[in-house]
Nucleic acid binder design. Structure first.
Lengths: 215, 215
DNA sequence: GTCTATATAATGATAGAC
DNA sequence: GTCTATCATTATATAGAC
């Protein structure tokens, strides 16, 4: 998946390539996440990089290829947080809080990435079928087993693990995907750190009862 | 807002207008929700209606005007459920369950509408600034007061009402907006009634502890 | 009001000089 | 590898017959 970022297979990337490629991918993540695949003009990405658009199409053969490369780079880091925080050894509620904070931090620091993923899902997810059906499904099954183990030990109340994970995602990603709605409701120019903190606290209030002493 | 659906102000709409307009708006909701504003071709909407695309642009002066009209019709029904279920008289937990079921039913029966709204938010919500800052904000403030009243009476645990509503929305709309993701995870061709039911039950499991006897 | 045909604008992609 | 200029395609919007 990572090699989508490298249209050619040179063993040692040249200096300009090492410098320009990440710059293009960063600009592409912002633009695709903000305008969508169809709404993005290659020229805007080029403008953000300060280079002519022909250069973009020199590195990536087409707009769609750049889109796929941008998605691929994003998906590589998408699931990283879960394995760190949701592990069998860790204390359940401590892991949940860490996971929610990590997901929320992603929505705060890289909102366009979250929006890019959301747009891809909304438009049918054709580009990420493989990721969804293989990587993500395996990821969810692995963590569902951890939840079920906690439940079997009486450390967690009985709840459907898959639907629970979906709720965790939608609730945390909403702070990126529905950002303009939240800004309007909270009457903010842009969301404050305290807003994200309040969102975390609200989430934790809902989740804590799952982990209290079950008696 | 409703009159955006009617480009002319004839007091008595002609018969073909009454027949064709809703058909166009239905097709537009599906197409805009599936492909986004930029990704939608007027010709596809026309094809779904079985009419030439020039007719679409006769009724609506531009693709963007049709987009706004489609959004306007959607927003008119967007908030209808809340006032029915979240009222001061009703039993809190009964109201919450009714509200969640209503929101989930919308995601099941009209997913393209939910996706259209989501796409508009993702792309910055320029078209619905007025709705967000006036109508929706007033809506949320009204229901936040109900939550706060419940909390003051000891009928509900203390939780931030605005962030709580945001969680309710993201969690229920996710079953439309992230539908392809859920289908991949649950290994379904398309989501079953039992999947939505399991989602509702998961949500209720999280919410019930907010309303147990507080002692 | 409904349709066919067309003008016009936007933009992805390429050719070819440097 | 980088750039300018251009081509080719696509799709919105309009003109005008019926």
């Amino acid at each position: 998946m990572t090699d989508l970022c490298e249209p050619t297979r040179s063993r040692k990337p040249s200096a300009p390539r090492r410098a320009t490629l990440p710059q293009i991918l960063n600009a592409a993540e912002w633009t695709f996440g903000t305008r969508g695949l169809k709404g993005t003009r290659v020229e805007e990405i080029a403008g953000l990089c300060g280079i002519p658009k022909a250069n973009i199409l020199y590195y990536f053969h087409s707009k769609e290829a750049l889109y796929q490369a941008t998605l691929a780079r994003l998906l590589d880091i998408w699931l990283a947080d879960a394995d760190e925080w949701l592990s069998p050894e860790r204390d359940p509620m401590e892991g949940m809080e860490g996971y929610i904070r990590a997901k929320m931090a992603f929505s705060r620091t890289r909102p366009e990435g979250s929006r890019l993923f959301a747009q891809e899902l909304l438009s049918g997810g054709q580009m990420i079928q493989g990721f969804l059906k293989e990587t993500l499904r395996a990821h969810v099954e692995r963590h569902a087993e951890i939840f079920l183990a906690w439940q079997a030990k009486g450390l967690m109340r009985v709840i459907d693990p898959t639907h629970f994970m979906c709720l965790l995602w939608s609730g945390t990603q909403a702070y990126a995907d529905m950002q303009v709605q939240f800004e309007a409701l909270l009457d903010r120019e842009s969301l404050l750190d305290t807003d994200y903190e309040a969102g975390i606290e609200t989430f934790l209030t809902l989740i804590r009862p799952l982990f209290v002493q079950l008696g």
